[in-house]
């Protein structure tokens, strides 16, 4: 659940979602769910001249499984806090696996 919580803290930020078909979509993060499906608003496809397929779409849902990367705004991320959360979560999941 670490990344689900992490992405929830980024709602309202501008992110670029790079898909496994090399399409990059820039937009405001609206919501995320447990599968890391992502919803964006005010979207713009990068290199729209080459990819005009979604020109009339402003708000979209991206299936988590087709995401390669999400480019994030570094200013919105507390890396020390994030590392602590990752450490805690990994220790927790090891403990539950043994129980």
């Amino acid at each position: 659940m670490l990344f689900y919580s992490f992405f929830k803290t980024l709602v309202g930020q501008t992110v670029t979602v790079e898909l496994k078909n090399d399409l990059s979509v820039v937009g405001t993060l609206v919501s995320v769910d447990q599968f890391l499906n992502i919803k964006l608003d005010n979207i713009k496809v990068e290199h729209e001249d080459q990819h005009p397929h979604m020109m009339s779409v402003k708000n979209c849902f991206i299936r988590g499984s087709v995401v390669r990367y999400v480019h994030l705004p570094p200013a919105a991320i507390d890396t020390a806090l994030l590392q602590d959360a990752a450490r805690r979560e990994s220790q927790q999941s090891t403990a539950t696996a043994k129980a």
Binding site: L19, N21, D22, L23, V25, I43, Q50, H51, P52, H53, M54, M55, S56, V57, K58, N59, C60, F61, I62, R63, V66
Partner: peptide, 25 residues
């Protein structure tokens, strides 16, 4: 991959007959 909400007004103003593009990968 993606489900997008279509802006009908903008969509009907697009000149699809004149659009040239490679299919998406």
């Amino acid at each position: 991959a993606v489900v997008g909400l279509v802006d009908q007004e903008q969509d009907s103003s697009l000149q699809f007959g004149a659009l040239r593009a490679q299919p998406l990968p």
